[in-house]
Design a protein around this nucleic acid. Structure first.
Length: 648
RNA sequence: GCCGACGUAGCUCAGGGGUAGAGCGUUUCCUUGGUAAGGAAGAGGUCGUGAGUUCAAAUCUCAUCGUUGGCUCCA
């Protein structure tokens, strides 16, 4: 007998060779139906794999993250089976589960699969799933594994096997399909009730662009049809919120082929939104002791030779701007920091001056690969809410914490309630990728980890994700429909001060090197606005919305009164417009609702006589009649409340 | 940059070797209407661009530019 310990620390006894499924069955039939895998002493196993010793066990269902992974992994195998059945002779590469489903990379050898083939593959998958074929695990020797895939003529699997150690290799089979796979898998295909194949894309073998390009099919699957339906509805919702679609509809920004790829043009309404965000950040930064500076859009090549960016990015970026003078070259600025270093150097500094915080909404230009450009989230010209803090080594930690406060203040004010922080450190395997001394890196990494801990941030540590000049802390926010986005970033930099030979005179009357902190709570305004659009679905908070109030006169007779209301609002810096069209009130309301204006005012006979306005919010919310002055006060209050000042 | 898909009116999209279509928007006129679409008439496109095949190309072929789904990249 073996002793099995459940998560609640209760123990049960089973015959040697019992499986997690047996354990589930002994608890309840309902549980057994839902169990798809199990965590055995911390590793995820097949629910059908015999257990031969005393273990801690946690039964996993689709509701557990690792249960989902097993489910989707098994779905990838099922898709591969359907593909082999439909397109005989294709070569399979890899087919893992991902956060939102699964994919399989396939070498079609010249054949093509079109989006229109996906429905048939789905049908085939469901047909195979209904056979309730068990996923069977088999340990296999390396030689036998090689023999199998040599026979099958699959070079990808052979390459994978080449990297595995004998005795450590397993195959999984279901129905007529066998794959090299470490598992774990769900008990049988019957658990997969609903499948949707979402898209076809290209992918390189092992992610290397020098390798063979494969066809990747993405899909998602669920144990219940209803869950698939809900998932597809969420995807639909995301599509509705797509900032490229809303940005066009709401006339926030546009692109022009003549201006160039990845170079957004801000329309009047988008500019209001953008400038309001800038003002918000400017105000907070003034309170936090930042000094605004302004630097030009181009700089001499020498600046970037000094900063090291030329060496690293010179060839991959916009090419230099030449002047009539021989050998004189300028670059569009890809960064603001070198300029700020030169401002720091404009005069000798004393330790008493530090920290110095230079802030600039600096527009920078980077040559992103054409395939990477995407709406406003990935562009070639964008504006950072950038700042560089120059401080003494003993101030790093404190400054870092203050920046964290500012970032959190920003997120809260903009309605991002949920966020986590990622600490990006060096890749311990390959330190050659980074510039700067080991000692400095260690100091910087420690400062970040300590500040994050002190501020109680929910953090994850990622090795190998640091910038080449220093470690960083990135904030990830969760939006209204649960998607994660990377936003603000804070980076410690011991390298640029070195390269620019920045100095200050210490209390000991000796020269010392300051430490730099780069930080941008929004990151780029373009990207931030894109995320904000998708987060709010275009329904921005009142203080940000380009139009705050729309006034709808019921007839032409009331245009004068509408103008009076308009002027009153404008005098209080409330952004308002009047719909003067000769349309019926129903039509004006319809259009106002569509335009997402936070307040809709109706003015007619009644309102003129009583000096009131009829207030309506989008979504058929009738707030009734309000005194004109009361309404102005209400809007002002609402704006002030939403933009509480930053306090140190 | 690579692989696939797409590019027709301001927007959303249909069509498809033989004189270019719809809805919304826009313009003009009528209507001055009280909480989600009033009526009529009109304007608007060398079908992304360039070449080729053809008696004839928006339609087929190639190239190119752009958009897009991924991959690689991201100071």
């Amino acid at each position: 007998m073996i002793q099995v310990t459940l998560p609640d620390n209760s123990t049960r006894e089973y015959p040697i060779g019992s499986t997690a499924l047996d354990v589930a069955n002994s608890i309840s039939a309902g549980l057994a139906r839902n169990v798809i895998a199990a965590e055995i002493n911390g590793t995820v196993w097949d629910a059908t794999r015999p257990i031969k010793e005393d273990v801690n066990i946690k039964l996993l269902t689709f509701n557990d993250d690792s249960g989902k992974l097993a489910f989707w992994h098994s779905s990838a195998h099922l898709m591969a089976e359907a593909i082999e059945a439909t397109f005989p002779g294709v070569k399979l590469a890899i087919g893992p589960p991902i956060e939102t489903g699964f994919y399989y990379d396939i070498d079609l050898e010249g054949k093509t699969i079109a989006e229109s083939d996906l429905a048939n593959l789905e049908k085939k998958m469901i047909e195979l799933a209904r056979q309730k074929n068990p996923y069977i695990r088999k340990e296999i020797s390396k030689d036998d594994a090689i023999a199998y895939f040599t026979e099958k003529n699959d070079p990808y699997k052979l390459e994978l096997i080449d990297g595995l150690t004998d005795g450590d290799i397993t195959f999984y089979s279901q129905g007529n399909f066998t794959d090299l796979c470490a598992g774990p898998h769900i008990p049988d295909t019957g658990k997969i009730k609903a499948v949707k194949l979402l898209s076809i894309a290209g992918a390189y073998w092992r992610g290397d662009e020098n390798n063979q390009q494969l066809t990747r099919i993405y899909g998602v699957s669920f144990p219940k049809a209803k869950e698939l339906k809900e998932h597809l509805e969420r995807l639909e919702e995301a599509k509705k919120r797509d900032h490229r679609k809303l940005g066009k509809e709401m006339e926030l920004f546009t692109f022009s082929q003549k201006v160039g790829q990845g170079l957004p043009l801000w329309l009047p309404k988008g500019t209001i939104l953008r400038e309001r965000l800038e003002r918000f950040m400017r105000d907070a930064q003034l309170k936090a002791g930042y000094d605004p500076v302004v630097t030009p859009h181009i700089a001499s090549k020498e600046l970037y030779v000094t900063s090291g960016h030329y060496e690293k990015y010179g060839e991959d970026s916009f090419q230099p701007i030449k002047t009539p003078n021989v050998n004189e070259e300028f670059f569009l600025k890809p960064m603001n920091c070198p300029h700020h270093c030169e401002i720091y150097k404009s005069k000798p500094r004393s330790y008493k001056e530090l920290p110095i915080r230079y802030a600039e909404f600096g527009t920078v230009y980077r040559y992103e690969q054409s395939g990477e450009l995407h709406g406003l989230t990935r562009v070639r010209g964008f504006t950072q809410d950038d700042a560089h803090l120059f401080c003494r080594p003993d101030q790093v930690q404190q400054e870092f914490e203050k920046v964290i406060d500012l970032v959190i203040y920003t997120f809260k004010a903009l309605g991002f309630e949920e966020f986590t922080a990622q600490i990006s450190l060096r890749d311990p395997e390959d330190k050659s990728k980074y510039i700067g001394s080991d000692e400095n890196w260690d100091k910087a990494e420690a400062a970040i980890i300590d500040s994050a801990a002190k501020k109680g941030l929910n953090t994850v540590v990622e090795y190998g994700e640091a910038a080449f000049y220093g470690p960083k802390l990135d904030f990830m926010v969760k939006d209204a429909i649960g998607r994660k986005w990377q936003l603000g970033t804070i980076q410690v930099d011991y390298n640029l001060p070195e390269r620019f030979e920045l100095e200050y005179v210490g209390s000991d009357n000796l020269k010392h090197r300051p430490v730099m902190i780069h930080r941008a709570p929004f990151g780029s305004l373009e990207r931030f606005i894109a995320i904000l659009i998708e987060h709010t679905g275009g329904r921005f908070p009142l203080w940000l919305n380009p139009d705050q109030v729309i006034i709808l006169p019921i007839g032409e007779k009331f245009h004068d009164y509408a103008d009076k209301v308009l002027n009153l609002l404008k005098n209080d810096d409330i952004r308002a417009e009047v719909d003067y069209r000769a349309e019926k009130i129903g039509k004006k309301i319809f259009d106002a609702e569509k335009s997402k204006v936070p307040y809709i005012l109706l003015v007619g006979e009644k309102e003129v006589l009583a000096e009131t306005v009829s207030v309506r919010k989008p979504g058929k919310i009738d707030l009734g009649s309000m005194d004109l002055t009361d309404f102005v006060a209400k809007v002002n209050d609402e704006i002030n409340e939403a933009t509480v000042s930053f306090t140190n």
